[in-house]
Design a protein around this nucleic acid. Structure first.
Lengths: 213, 213
DNA sequence: TATTGTGAAGCCTTTCACAGCA
DNA sequence: TGCTGTGAAAGGCTTCACAATA
């Protein structure tokens, strides 16, 4: 924290992509990658890549490129994904179930440690599959208690829109630090809680704009 | 198309949000909204809102605000969501099923007209629920034929990562115009096809960065 | 020789501040 | 009077071009 110079928001948004790219390169056994290669894979300008990496130190090797391993390490450190983050999901419909089984979360040490629903009995007999081990679906009434007991820091909302604000309030009362809202409705949280929305329709609208123009 | 002055990319990204906001206001019976109100709801600066709206004409009423209805009409026209868009989904697991039942798509006249899977027999006996009417799940071998026959313009990919590129290729062969990829892997398409990715892990990474810094 | 690191230029975006108008 | 529309200023981001160097 504050270990690196202030990193521009635009750079932060690209970091996650670089990371995925580096993981792929590492899997292929590549030890070193040039800014040109990374730029090609991530679909950005090579100078951009170098400038982004320069924000967290000067450790490329001229004439060679960057150490894949070292880069990966630094990016994870900056993002804060170099440690486990404990997550709870509310609303175990299709989308909630998809997130419980989302394998990509494991790579970044995201761990779903609690799942809630309004009618847990209806949800596959209280138990839902999770990657590796099953997870018990609890009634939403127990959210505050369980979120605190299990040290949950991030809440995911995958309920229908009418319930989203209520669930957000419960998460706030339970002292989560961040909320990701997948319900297609705007919710309000106090300014000390970080809120991010994932609106599928917005993504489609943007796609359609570029198809139409 | 080309009816409006060139609209900056940053403005386009905000349009979908404005639209949702205006729909909510309309539902509440509001006829007119000021830039200050819209700014408050959408969490942006009021001057920004005015500048954004000014790109598609000068039709606010000084001293009053903007006609909710008129604004909504114009934004839909610009985005291109003022007509039906026909969509196909491939990969009917939890995420694919969630999208089939996603009510928010209806508002923007997004219509899912085909669904495919590698093993349709396993998926709830060939039929999956959709909002209103059930939809038949077809084998992926029939993608090209059916996508063409049903005039699908947009393909959604919700398969596991290893299948994503193959499915993208099939969509391209079937002449879709745009692809939304929900599989957490980078895919390649020819430049005449518009590609958008929805990576949940990237959204979480961004949230975590802001929790850590 | 190949590739990094970076100053400087140019472009894009946001915000301010206020004239113009219903 | 209250709110829009917008020129101008400020700030941020991207790209270029090239010196530095492993």
């Amino acid at each position: 924290m504050a270990k690196y110079a202030k990193i521009p928001e635009a750079t932060v948004r690209r970091l996650s992509n670089y990371l995925k790219c580096l993981e792929d390169l590492e899997q292929k056994g590549e030890k070193v990658a040039s800014s040109a290669l990374i730029a090609l894979i991530c679909n950005v300008n090579a100078a951009q890549v170098r400038k982004d990496f320069a924000y967290f130190g000067e450790f490329g090797i001229r004439g060679m490129g960057y150490s894949v391993n070292e880069l990966r390490y630094h990016i994870r450190e900056i993002l804060g994904t170099n440690r486990e983050w404990r997550i709870a999901v509310v609303g175990i419909g299709n989308l909630g179930s998809a997130l419980l089984m989302y394998k990509d979360f494991l790579k970044q040490s995201y761990k779903i440690v609690a799942a809630f629903d309004q009618e847990p009995v209806k949800v596959i007999g209280h138990i839902s599959e999770q990657i590796g081990k099953p997870i018990e679906i609890l009634h939403i009434d127990r959210l505050k208690e369980v979120v605190k007991a299990r040290n949950v820091e991030i809440g995911l909302i995958t309920t229908p829109p009418p319930e989203a604000q209520k669930v957000a309030n419960l998460f706030v009362e339970a002292n989560v630090k961040g909320i990701m809202n997948f319900a297609p409705t705007q919710i309000r949280v106090p300014s000390h809680v970080v809120l991010r929305n994932v609106f599928f329709t917005a993504a489609l609208d943007n796609l359609v704009y570029h198809l139409s123009n």
